[in-house]
Design a protein around this nucleic acid. Sequence first.
DNA 1: AAGTGAGTCAACCGCCAACCC
DNA 2: TGGGTTGGCGGTTGACTCACT
Length: 330
Amino acid sequence: MGRAPCCDKANVKKGPWSPEEDAKLKSYIEQNGTGGNWIALPQKIGLKRCGKSCRLRWLNYLRPNIKHGSFTEEEDNIICTLYVSIGSRWSIIAAQLPGRTDNDIKNYWNTRLKKKLLGNQRKHQHPPPPQKRSSPIITTTQPTTPYSSSNSSSASDNCVPMPPLVPPASIHDYDYNTLHHQYSSHDTQQHLYPATINNTTSTSLPSNNNMYDLQQGFENLTDDDLSHLMACVIDNQEQQMQMQQQGGYYGMGMASGSSNTTSTESTTTAWAPPPLLSVSDYELGGGHACRQSIISHYQHDDAVAFHQEPAASRFDKVIVKPEAKGCGKI
DNA sequence: AAGTGAGTCAACCGCCAACCC
DNA sequence: TGGGTTGGCGGTTGACTCACT
């Protein structure tokens, strides 16, 4: 026996909402509220709709102050920034864009923004030499700014473009508390991810102040930087999908050493393809090797440059939640 | 004009966590 | 404390539109 359906599917209308249905739902909620029970609501107002459907219709279309229509450049930037930061957490992203719904943003991302950024990715597939590239980098000199882009030239000798550790689709696996601290003890490192993702829960942001928290560290990114970073994110996701479709499974990808590899160890052993598992599937004890793997995968030339870097890794502090959502799906 | 493929987006599905009794 | 119910979420689907051939 499966789970009980939320409504009597046989007597429930599906498909597009009629203006009459909209009017019924809207006027009832405006006068009476939802009554705290969406499941019971359609019966109360004589709608042959599933309660969930009513909720969705209200939230995505009928409620006041919903913004429809094209997204602004500023909204684009916020979406991209937050996507890089927290992944496909559309409800959280939507909370930072007044009037936009998670569904809208999700659709917009999937149909337009992603392609737009993929278009930019092609521009980056034949990039100029790394030291001249204006892309997200890691330096060993700036302790507090997650990214250095426009001001990166002075550190270019040690710079490596740094794709995300995991695709954002899996970023919900992070322990946010740990993420919050993951770089803070490495004063000699520059960081990729924002240092301040403060929420321990994903479903709510107490206030809009969090927008700044979530975006902190990305504020200095140029559009070019962001495009490149997003391209890496998307590229990583798509490659993982392809590998999964092919039945590939590379586990941690720890071809050498172990999760206990210390930050001062160096390895030049060839790596397996980027790990299909998200960070949550293991603890990145040493981190150096993992970073090398990812860099090797994305930017071979830059990986060479990376070998010259001090071994201490920004991944050193990433602790994972093995039970987190998304584990074991591969 | 008809066929076709791509793009868009509203709506649905199923999972999961929170809540309630 | 445990089981059932509900709300919320992200992923996916499918109807519709439009451009192109």
